[in-house]
Structure formats: structure tokens, C-alpha cells
Nucleic acid binder design. Structure first.
Length: 274
DNA sequence: ATGGTCGGCAACCGA
């Protein structure tokens, strides 16, 4: 049972306008069908649409805002529907989804959800840090709202900067990071709960099981990120049960962290057969 | 144990 190959990339770009040349470099080399961006930091009317069109990505779905956050889906394949959701009663631009169906000549539709989960500040204590409280509430809402619990036989992909490195070998030192936001037990549990509720398959760990270390982010603050290699796996690609066994390749473009004026996150890509 | 660097946008906030 083999259909068309479908490649999707997630990348926290940390300003799409500043790094549009890096995006172009990546797209020319990798040619994913769909690129999901986070932290575009770009109002929709300032998004570099023409550049993406010239690169062959003519179909774009935007949920941007001025200065902060912002997500986008750019695609070579036309989609039928766009959906955006707000969380925790805030206007933050942290989610957008597109559904591929008739226009993509897909008999069975496929929805791609693109998320930018709040980072959560520095202090992992909800009583003194409202940003951490926001992050935990956001994760609870993802679990409970039902929109990210695929139905039986529903084909869905959930990607993004989820800002949580849930497993022991998703960080350079489990012990050193237990009290560091992104790897505290409560966050890891909440992320795992979303995964479990939706029966999502974590593509990275399905193909590269622990104890192999996997990182997608390296801090700007390290003097030599590559030598220190104190990374974390914050960027994820999940697929619904209906797509289980249909994905094959998984790649982290680690080189991108060493490009000129890089994002602190690198592209994460998977290919599946639809 | 601490401070370290980015980007947006024009003083700090968010990461």
C-alpha cells in the first residue's frame, strides 16, 4: 500500500524576515512539501510571500503578530482548509493548521497542526512565574480540548516547537536539567499526556530510540555550541495512529545551527507515504 | 554557582 511521498519540516526560525535567505537555502536543498515555521515574528501583511512563491511554495497559511511568536505553513501542495486556535484566552499566535484533501487529490484528508508552545520563563514555579503557569495551562488545553485527539482512522500530523524535551535522552544532562524549564517532570508529564490521549506516534523516537541523544536546539549563550553540544529536543513531529508505519525517513539538519546568523533551532524533517 | 546571546523594536520583553 504505497501512495505519494509527503515530506514535512518544522523549524523555529526566530524571525522569518531576518533569516529568509537561510530558509531559501534549506528549501532548495531539502524541498519538503510543507514547511511549518514558528517564531516568525512577523505581521501577516509583512510576510515574505513573494520569496516563497519564487521558491515554489505558493500556498501559505499565516497566523502572525507583531514582534512576538507567530506561526506559518508554507506548502508546494494546495490545501483545502485553514484553522487557527487561540489558547488560554490569549491572542498569542501559537497555532495554525491546514487540511489537505481534494485540491491535493487526496482521497483521505490529512491535517497538519503547527504549534508554538509557550517557553515558560525561567522559574519552574507557578506561584511566582505566570509564564510557567501559562505553559502548563496551554499543555492542558491541548490535551483536553479534543482538537488534537485524532479520531480512529483520522490522518493527522502535529509538529512544532513544543518547548519541552520530554525524555531523559532528549537533553544533554537529565540530572542537570530537572529543574530547568523545558525538562521539569511536570512539563514532561503534560506533554506525554497529550501524546497518550491522542495516541500520537513520536516519529523521532520511533526511528531513533533511547538511549541515543537527539537535539534540535542549542542555546545562543554557549560560547561554542558545537563543542559543548548541550542541546535539547524541543521540536517534534508526531503522527496519528492512522499514519503509523507510513513514515520512513527522519532528519535533523544540525548543520543549520552553524550557518551564518542562525536560529537557535534547526529544521526537523520526516517523510511518509500517503 | 553564575552569567552567558539573540531579535524586535526602540525600553525592555520574551526566549
Amino acid at each position: 500500500m504505497r501512495g505519494m511521498p509527503f515530506t514535512v519540516t518544522t523549524w523555529n526560525i526566530n524571525s522569518v524576515r531576518l533569516r529568509i535567505d537561510l530558509v531559501a537555502k534549506f528549501l532548495k536543498a531539502t524541498r519538503p512539501d510543507v514547511l511549518c515555521l514558528q517564531e516568525t515574528k512577523c505581521p501577516d501583511d509583512a510576510f515574505p510571500l513573494k520569496r516563497f512563491k519564487r521558491l515554489g511554495y505558493e500556498h501559505v497559511a499565516l497566523n502572525g503578530q507583531k514582534g512576538y511568536h507567530g506561526v506559518a505553513v508554507v506548502s508546494r501542495i494546495p490545501f483545502d482548509k485553514i484553522n487557527k486556535r487561540s489558547f488560554c484566552g490569549k491572542t498569542d499566535s501559537r497555532h495554525i493548521a491546514v487540511t489537505f484533501g481534494e485540491q491535493a487529490k487526496l482521497k483521505d484528508p490529512l491535517t497538519v497542526h503547527n504549534f508554538y508552545v509557550p517557553a515558560g520563563g525561567d522559574e519552574p514555579d507557578v506561584t511566582i512565574n505566570p509564564k510557567f503557569e501559562h505553559k502548563l495551562s496551554f499543555l492542558d488545553e491541548m490535551r483536553d480540548c479534543g482538537d488534537y485527539t485524532p479520531k480512529k482512522n483520522e490522518r493527522a500530523v502535529l509538529v512544532g516547537d513544543l518547548n519541552v524535551a520530554p525524555l531523559e535522552h532528549d537533553v544533554w544532562s537529565h540530572k542537570a536539567l530537572l529543574k530547568i524549564v523545558s525538562h521539569t517532570p511536570i512539563e514532561c508529564e503534560k506533554l506525554t499526556a497529550i501524546q497518550k490521549t491522542g495516541k500520537w506516534i513520536d516519529v523521532a523516537r520511533a526511528l531513533i530510540p533511547e538511549p541515543e541523544k537527539i537535539y534540535t536546539w542549542w542555546s545562543y549563550r554557549a560560547p561554542d555550541w558545537a563543542a559543548a553540544n548541550k542541546g535539547r529536543r524541543l521540536d517534534h513531529i508526531w503522527v496519528s495512529e492512522a499514519l503509523g508505519g507510513r513514515f520512513s525517513k527522519f532528519k535533523i539538519t544540525r548543520d543549520a545551527r552553524g550557518w551564518e546568523r542562525p536560529s537557535d533551532h534547526v529544521p526537523v524533517t520526516t517523510t511518509m507515504e500517503l
